[in-house]
Nucleic acid binder design. Structure first.
Lengths: 243, 243
DNA sequence: TGTCTATAGATGTATAGACAACTCTAGACA
DNA sequence: TGTCTAGAGTTGTCTATACATCTATAGACA
């Protein structure tokens, strides 16, 4: 019982607090070897399974590193690699209390993709591609140009959906759950077309989020989102799980 | 034993696979109520703790939603909000096999910050700020301008560290573990200074990652990274935990 | 000196059982 | 009819125990 707080939390949470405290106040510096599960079990007066669960979760959260047969160690502090959450623009606009509207600029089927598209899809054999462009407005102001290319072999009836109301991913998620995703964020100067659609000047800076989706071997979609930089930055906030 | 794979994985992993399979092939659609732990226990022939661990981890990973006293349900598919990992540029350059070099452009102490700085730090009382600018090179090509403002009250001896070799965060992490972080990604046109330091043209598009760090109430740092968009995009790849 | 092996010690997984906490509902009761 | 209550069902936590698996090392042995 020495060291464990007496608030009404589960025991394994108290053990986690105990460990985080020791890391936080410097008692257990980086790469320090923790007491073994057995030692913690007897010194804290809880069962080994409880200690084990606490240490396992802290490991999953990045605070500890465990090596079977050796021991448990304090990990170097994280957040030198940090997570950012990219959310669906429709839900985000609504979450901000703004009004959302979408406008379909283009819907077409490309029967014979050019070389650039073929490369992007890593095609082995030729296959038609569906192409869509949608502009999203927040309170009447255009904030995002969304461009999608979809492999027709993998997603049927892509062009039939309602592009103005459905979430970016919802359609694909329903048809093919558990896919792989690749993201790439970059900055580009606005082309003449960008400028016209987003009400900005040519060569203004745009934030581009490129998203590729896989199912098995073949690539199903390439989505490109162009955000107007200053109007719509991507953001996130990380709060450590410390209570 | 019906339904569990026979590869050499731990049992709770097999149970997770079993659940993910049923979600993936549509047997258990969105919001479907899963069999209770007791039912899974007897139908799969494993103990309840094993089932419980599998379901708990799948819940933490976002696949399930559990309500005490009611049951377990299939969550709507995730990845409409997706995670991106931002890594330290030094380690990333080295991971790509390139050579890294950094050049200190400026080191100064601002005794009386102007209004813009005061706002960024949300200062209550006046306090000097340390300011640094470093350019990072990959194989001799400038790829990033790193600008930091540090509250001197919270981080002592900031200007004494070796800016060219130490990781972006390492120093701060050592002195103050378990901090809060806020990120903002945006795109801006290069100023004359950017253009000169990064060997690009004025008004070229730059990717900006703004990072604020907090310890308790006061803000410790505001970091600004300017990536040259096309040369150094931010990226990530998400692979579902399916084996 | 070098190599192999047995072993201690650590973490990883699995089980059975018990109790706690929460939700919903059928049925008692006014 | 409306309200309250007891209970069944479900998930959450905790313990005690056992065995598996991995690692490092001390000591036997060539």
């Amino acid at each position: 019982m020495p060291g464990l707080s007496n608030t009404a939390r589960p025991l394994y949470e108290k053990v986690k607090d105990f460990v985080l405290d020791n890391i936080g106040n410097g008692s257990w510096p980086q790469n320090e070897k923790l007491p073994s599960e057995h030692e913690l079990t007897s010194s804290l007066g809880v069962s080994r399974m409880t200690v084990h669960r606490a240490l396992r979760e802290l490991t999953a959260e990045g605070y500890l590193r465990r090596v079977q047969g050796v021991g448990t160690f304090v990990s170097p502090p994280k957040a030198q690699s940090t997570l950012i959450e990219i959310s669906n623009i429709i839900t985000e606009i609504k979450a901000r209390g703004s009004q959302h509207r979408a406008e379909v600029i283009l819907l077409e089927r490309i029967e014979r993709p050019d070389q650039m598209l073929l490369d992007a899809f890593e095609f082995r054999k030729l296959c038609p591609v569906d192409h869509s462009m949608v502009v999203h407005y927040e309170n009447g102001v255009p904030v995002q140009l969304e461009e999608r290319y979809v492999n027709t072999e993998l997603v049927k009836n892509y062009l039939d959906q309602d592009f103005t109301s459905i979430g970016t991913y919802d359609y694909l998620q329903h048809s093919t759950p558990l896919t792989e995703v690749e993201h790439l964020i970059s900055a580009i100067p606005a082309t003449e077309r960008h400028a016209r659609l987003l009400h900005i000047r040519e060569r203004d800076s745009c934030l581009v989020l490129n998203r590729k989706t896989w199912t098995g071997q073949a690539i199903a979609t390439v989505n490109t989102f162009t955000y107007v930089g200053s109007r719509y930055p991507l953001g996130s906030r990380y709060l450590p799980p410390k209570k």
